[in-house]
Write a protein that binds this DNA or RNA. Structure first.
Lengths: 144, 144
DNA sequence: TAAAGTTGCTTGCACACACAATTATAATAA
DNA sequence: TTATTATAATTGTGTGTGCAAGCAACTTTA
């Protein structure tokens, strides 16, 4: 049958997993009014105190244009600020942003328990690691 | 460091993998003028000769509304037709659609070689299976 | 057989992400 | 110093997907 064909396709399964887990993550982070990716961006900014958009893009593996849009929204929320320096725009978190960090980590932990409760902690963490490694390899080739 | 945190998050890694593999798949299927998901849908239609949108949604694990949009485009391309029967709309492939099937399978095979060349055939196929299983489990819980 | 509920599909709206083109600044070569 | 090239960020536009609400047809119950 066709289903067998589909489930042997990495594109198909990876897209599906991404939809499911995105759904879970959005639900979780919605409790603090952020999209999961925004939350991750905020963590990246928090860590370094001052960081360029390019660095953010590299950490999150997103395109610069995507980062620009995310940043717009987070500035509008008042959780980060943008200091332009030459051609770079350096992002740092505001007090309001820093105040969110604990909540973000709580959501993060919750999300992880949510899926590890279902997958099993060992299996879930292993899967995550394998997916990470596969991404690294595929992305490396893609970009040459 | 933060990267460690990120790479331990299934949401983060799964989204990233999905972006990378979607990119590869889109490139591959672009050679025949289809998006990967449209190609999959066409295969599902081809298999059954006449299939409801609901069934398609179940096979592809997409929302009904998404299937509606995909079908609109494929009808516009002339590769499927829509026969309304009561409240159901039954989809079947046209001659033009059937003529595409071989090319779709070729793309499919190419895509698979592309990533398996990088990941290793065994690893790639195992990963795909594990992702499939994780999706099943998580989706099952999500939907109750 | 009429009212109420259910089901399949569609529509309007929204979100995340990307690509390509553009702007603005910096670095290098002439 | 000027011209060229490279880099960082932004903007316009498009694609894929989803949710919530609505419509249309069928089913059940009274």
């Amino acid at each position: 049958m066709l289903e067998i064909f589909f489930k042997e396709c990495l594109y198909f399964t990876a897209s599906r997993l991404s939809r499911v887990i995105t759904n879970m993550a959005e639900r979780e982070f919605a409790t603090i009014g952020l999209s999961p990716t925004s939350a991750f961006l905020l963590m990246a900014v928090y860590e370094k105190e001052s960081i360029s958009q390019k660095e953010i893009a590299q950490i999150l593996h997103l395109q610069p244009s995507t980062v620009t849009r995310l940043i717009e929204k987070l500035i509008a929320k008042g959780v980060i600020v943008n200091r332009v320096e030459g051609r770079m725009s350096l992002i740092s978190s505001t007090e309001k942003g820093r105040a969110l960090v604990d909540e973000i980590q709580r959501c993060w932990t919750n999300l992880r328990s949510n899926y590890n409760d279902i997958l099993g902690e060992k299996k879930g963490d292993e899967l995550t690691l394998q997916i990470f490694e596969a991404s690294e390899q595929l992305e490396f080739i893609e970009k040459g």
